[in-house]
């Protein structure tokens, strides 16, 4: 497990720079929001999930959630077909905040090809990226 400030990046997962984690199991990928991603949004009050059977392309917006003050869209990290969505989130969207790497998963994709998996970041690479990201953020806000 890699830790960047207060945020955890489990080793067994892969990541995008858009705060999405991916767990690849054979030809299926489980997708969720990272602990850093959910902390930027806070207080998730609504979730909009894709439809099972929907074909999705990498980087296409497929899910959204509304926090107390903003709507955040989630791009699909990989190309494929949605095979399952976490319907429990529709009634309990705050689960994403409480357990982003567990019960707060968003959807599962049946992958068209595993070649795109190579484009995802390992926990180590993600931590390097997000260390820089957090530093830049602090500089921005400090003016």
């Amino acid at each position: 497990m890699v830790v960047v400030e207060d945020f955890v990046f489990p080793d067994e997962l892969l990541y995008t720079t858009k705060h999405v984690w991916v767990k690849v199991e054979d030809k299926t990928a489980i997708v969720g929001v990272t602990s850093l991603g959910q902390s930027l949004a806070k207080g998730i009050v609504h979730v909009d999930l894709p439809v099972v059977g929907q074909k999705v392309r990498r980087n296409e917006v497929v899910a959204s959630f509304e926090t107390i003050k903003a709507v955040v869209r989630i791009p699909s990290p990989l190309t494929g077909k949605i095979v399952e969505v976490n319907e429990r989130l529709l009634d309990n969207p705050e689960t994403i905040n409480k357990d982003p790497y567990g019960e707060g998963w968003l959807f599962k994709i049946s992958l068209r090809s595993k070649s795109e998996v190579r484009k995802l970041l390992t926990a180590k690479k993600a931590s390097t990226y997000f260390k820089k990201f957090l530093k830049k953020e602090r500089e921005k806000y400090a003016g």
Binding site: L40, A41, K42, T67, K69, A70, F133, E137, K140, Y141
Partner: peptide, 14 residues
């Protein structure tokens, strides 16, 4: 970007 913070609350503030 170089101006608006990523964190939602801070970006609103700015």
């Amino acid at each position: 970007n170089n101006v608006i913070p990523e964190k939602i609350e801070e970006s609103y503030q700015m």
